[in-house]
Amino acid sequence: MHASGMGGIRTAGDLVARMQMSKKMRLKEAKEYVAGKLKVSVSDLADEVIMNEVRQDLDIATVYGGMGEQSRGIEAKFRIAKLLDLEINSVNRFLKKTGWYQEG
């Protein structure tokens, strides 16, 4: 996180990163896309307090991954794929390996 990082799953850094990686979005566009999907302002995306609540409400994992009933790991990525309208490789692999998804 340090001097300039967004903060990963502590905030919305992982979600903005996914838009850069999957759709080659530049930083501004990626932040606006994620903010729109989360129904928050762009300035909220790197705020730990707001984003912790938003992530709990959406059940898309927080840094307290071991506590309570919240989704974690691959469970949260299923929700993120749907939320951001993305294909996530590990999610698709999980579906194939569990027999829940068939190509074509």
Binding site: S4, M6, L27, L45
Partner: peptide, 13 residues
């Protein structure tokens, strides 16, 4: 230690 203004955060790989 110095840092960015709120809103100027970027992605770290």
């Amino acid at each position: 230690f110095v840092s960015v203004r709120h809103g100027n955060e970027l992605i770290l790989t």
